[in-house]
Design a protein around this nucleic acid. Structure first.
Lengths: 342, 342
DNA sequence: GTCATGTGCTAAATGCATTTAGCGGATTCT
DNA sequence: AGAATCCGCTAAATGCATTTAGCACATGAC
């Protein structure tokens, strides 16, 4: 029908072409140490392999070795926010560097889909599993016992596990530092989430972010204006809090926002009063979502380093660094136009 | 070291446990038609397989059949915008429905990386290839001859190929229809891209979007105000055009924006003049990126249906519908708060 | 009773790469 | 010279599922 039977080149073909046995070919092409094959033989084989365009059959290799050179990524959400995509990018490039490929599945946050996906992956004999989460809660994952080496990215399990998290313990201090450099004397903190902040076991990232923030604030000379607790971290929430704050007569030199979506609402409220971030006051935020660069002026934000987190997960898996515990990645401050000073 | 040798359950184990041959087990478990095995035998085998938790070894199956039940997705960008993620979601669920898994690679738009990725995928014996693009230009892809069935999503090749595109030929008419329903008499079209609009061969989506828009506008009773050509489709461009438009005294009943990023800039310019979309005038946009729902008021937008496009690509591949040509997916209008009427 | 069919099932080949045990010849040691 | 060692290389086993050819027995036709 199609091409006249584009037969696959196998090791047998290379063996025949080079006049050596299949065993010799395999030994040579895999650079096995301790073998005693002659230089000419080695060269003949390599030449023949190249000539024929030989590529070992991955299925056959897997069948023999039990290894697939494939990693599984199971994410709760691929679709929303820049995070999942960036994590995927990090994982993809790290895996490619080490000659592995990546199988992807998505659970939409449903526990049974997670189990299903894990079993799928186990069935496909992946060499390791990465579980990615879009919000870093601690969950009771109830992972099926597959024996697969597993790393969680941006999440924790009730059971001990290997986890990669953003270094939120430093993030707040960094923010306060930058606010001080802006020359501010007073600051408003918009976006505490009451439940989350007081439950560090369940919400490691949020609680650490705020603990770090409040600790640094307390040690600083900054005057903290009001206490702006939100229901949620959406633009509407930031907008409402800021409108209220301005109506109550507060006029901070700087605003620290819980995240970029909150900051977006803050920007809108400020714009309505003719206040321009970066000129009339400073605004600093967390996460560095895509909207941070869309906003006018562009938003300075402390970035969630998903790409590096994904890459580290791959390395941990492939280097067999699998003692349960947390690995943390620093969060860089992405300087744009919403902060005064510097 | 680990578990005491968690040996894999093979077909031989099932064979032994059920007292039937391996051949019989394979025949039964695969529901081969035309076989004449007794009902009791069939049941014994199924019971044994279930009991032991037998799962066929994928590598062995692939080795035998030459099929891997794996699809390759190569995307130029996973990281930016919601599109790639959504395409991945569509592909993932469609593939899962048909019991296939998906291998993913990213090229960052670099042609040599594309070739590299395709060869990787071919080497891994994927059953089909999906090439995803974030902006739908026609490109000279120079695909290596792998013989792999291939579908392009949101892109075209110079050579004939199977492609899935959004149905932009309808999108403009739909937009104009909605603007008429809003009760508008006049409209401004913000965001023509001169080069792209006049080069339908290279920019099928943009040119069709605008051709459709202009055609429908000409047939309608609407007065079209000004001609707002942009350099690029970023918030800044939309902001600048709108500011200028308002300064020149234009005051359209409705604004149609080239895409959501442009609309974001339009919103900012309107806000500065105290104009509220959905109340003082209507704003309609294209793409339905995440920011569309972040904006205040939330932006009504005609959606790029990436998820369905991805899913269709999978079906085309698995159904072997591979005659070169275009498949189009309708673009739904996502109603939110920025349009009057209805 | 004999030949032809039908029935239920299995042995063995196959796909491909990897790895171990070991063969035959050359060299070195005693 | 005979034994021990080394060298360069290969035959064959292995991993697992699928599929084809065909075996042994039962049933039916004449």
């Amino acid at each position: 029908m199609d091409t006249p039977k584009a037969k696959r080149v196998t090791i047998a073909d290379v063996s025949e072409a080079s006049g050596m046995s299949k065993a010799a070919v395999s030994l040579i092409l895999n650079n096995k140490p301790g073998t005693r094959l002659s230089v000419e033989a080695t060269e003949r084989v390599r030449a023949a392999a190249k000539e024929l365009g030989y590529r070992p059959n991955v299925a056959a290799q897997s069948l023999r070795s039990g290894k697939t050179r494939t990693l599984g990524l199971i994410s709760d959400q691929v679709t929303v926010t820049r995070f999942a995509s960036e994590m995927i990018t990090g994982i993809l490039s790290a895996a490619e560097k080490r000659d592995h490929t990546v199988l992807i599945a998505e659970t939409f946050g449903k526990p049974d889909q997670l189990v299903e996906a894990i079993e799928q992956m186990a069935h496909r004999d992946v060499d390791g599993l990465i579980l990615g989460f879009m919000d870093s809660r601690r969950r009771d994952l109830k992972l099926p016992q597959t024996g697969l080496p597993t790393v969680l990215v941006n999440g924790l399990d009730e059971s001990p596990s290997v986890a990669v998290l953003p270094n939120e313990a430093m993030s707040g201090a960094q923010a306060v530092q930058r606010v001080l450099e802006s020359g501010a004397r007073s600051v408003a903190l918009i976006g505490a989430l009451e439940g989350a902040e007081k439950d560090p076991e369940t919400y490691p990232s949020i609680s650490r972010r705020f603990a770090s923030l409040r600790g640094a604030l307390a040690e600083s000379s900054l005057e903290v204006l009001g206490n702006w607790v939100l229901e949620d971290w959406n633009p509407t929430d930031g907008y409402a809090a800021t409108t209220q704050m301005l109506a109550e007569g507060f006029r901070p030199d700087a605003i620290i926002c819980a995240n970029d979506r909150v900051a977006m609402g803050v920007f809108q409220a400020l714009a309505e009063k003719g206040l321009v971030p970066g000129e009339d006051l400073s605004v600093l935020s967390f996460d560095d979502e895509i909207i941070a660069s869309y906003l006018r002026p562009r938003l300075t934000s402390i970035r969630l380093p998903y790409e590096k987190m994904g890459a580290l997960a791959v390395d941990l898996l492939l280097d067999r660094k699998l003692e349960p515990g947390e690995h943390q990645i620093d969060m860089p401050l992405i300087e744009r136009d919403s902060m005064k000073g510097e």
